[in-house]
Design a protein around this nucleic acid. Structure first.
Lengths: 224, 224
DNA sequence: GCGCAAGAGAAAATCGATTATTTTAGTTTT
DNA sequence: AAAACTAAAATAATCGATTTTCTCTTGCGC
């Protein structure tokens, strides 16, 4: 898109920064987001923090309760299951639409995104999640969904995906499942998409989503 | 639910008031929402208005562009089609889940909501849309979807539905289609839901959504 | 006459301070 | 010792004013 907007508003900046931290799992679930602290941290006034946080709350990435402030959403197995169910339905629908209606440019985006993903190592030398991999992964999954030509459908899917990201990072941090060949799953997703094999593609995407959720749920249950 | 929160924050009040006006079609599409005006109108400060409007923007009910303020979203046939497609997919998915997993309480809610809807006249004596009918209609459609047990799925469907409401009011105001028996469609939806006839139910819901959209699209094309 | 630039005015964004509410800590009472 | 009340501190919500950015107008040069 055109980056015509040379300047970014401060509220916008804080919004994006906070959002990134949230999705990256840097903020502990349940932790309070004190406007005072954040204002000091980002060197802005309360108003801009409040605007940023309100926006995040509107998208469900932050919990807000009147007179009681804001907090990072607490994670729960029940919500994870709920969310997973919603994601499977909405993402497979979007994926199906993309397969049915996506054009050649969409196929190209899928292949390009997959290539980048496949060539990006998931872990850094120190064993942490790689920033680059995160982005490539995000981009790949977005590519799978955005061929439908419906902005609203894509947005709905992405919104759920963002919320799920609050979990996914903890999942990968806590329960890296060695028995899963995630790279193969991604490869197959790309292949089936380009082959326009709607039903197998949707089934695989559903399984892909559910597996990650199950891994985390199992882990949390074991810990708790 | 418990109305423990005796007091509502001002931002909350303005948010709800604005949202209601938006969904009721009181504000012309494309009209700017000037914080100054609104602040005067609701007798609150800019900050409060800004927070309310930002929240609406986060939900897609208001357009926001940096340094340029907020506006009621402009309607377009292209967006209507896009939105309709997304709604058909997400709402039928939610409806299907409700039919598959809804309990007896859900069936009861559907029947109760339908009864209320059927007994509420759509138009007032003066021929305007009845406030009560609007609410009953909203409640009925919500009832159809909320048996899935997935808060997120319901929320996704409702979010799209809200956005579509920006159109629906104009549709009914401009193009009341006398050839449609909407009451019958609602009755059949309720019947099929309770009968757990998933496929016919989903098909009917899809048609129900599409018909309204087509009526408006046709009308707009004719006018433009 | 047309296009462009400077400036006045309007509107958005931001700030710092004030007010209201909740939470916490301490104290008293049973 | 536990419960309940009270006062103090912390935090959320709101305000009014200031600063920044955009927009529209007016005047100037081509």
């Amino acid at each position: 898109m055109s980056a015509v907007q040379g300047k970014e508003t401060r509220a916008e900046g804080v919004y994006r920064a906070l959002r990134a931290r949230l999705l990256r799992g840097e903020l502990a679930p349940g932790a309070r987001l004190r406007p005072g602290e954040l204002a000091a941290e980002y060197a802005v006034s309360l108003s801009v923090v409040r605007e940023a946080v309100t926006r995040l709350a509107g998208q469900g990435l932050v919990d807000a309760s009147p007179q009681r402030g804001f907090a990072v959403p607490a994670l729960s197995v029940a919500e994870l299951r709920d969310l997973t169910r919603a994601r499977v339905l909405v993402e497979t629908a979007a994926f199906g639409e993309s397969i049915a209606r996506g054009d050649v440019a969409w196929e190209s985006r899928v292949l390009a995104a997959h290539h980048t993903l496949a060539r990006t190592p998931p872990l850094t030398a120190e064993g942490h999640l790689s920033e680059a991999f995160e982005e490539a992964h995000q981009t790949f999954h977005l590519a799978l969904l955005d061929g439908s030509g419906s902005r609203h459908l894509t947005a709905a899917a992405l919104s759920l995906r963002d919320r799920a990201d609050l979990y996914r990072h903890w999942s990968m941090r806590l329960a890296p499942d060695p028995s899963r060949d995630i790279a193969a799953e991604h490869r197959d997703l790309a292949d089936l998409a380009v082959a326009r094999a709607a039903d197998p593609a949707k089934a695989l995407l559903a399984a892909h989503i559910e597996r990650t959720a199950e891994a985390l749920a199992a882990h949390v249950c074991a810990v708790t």
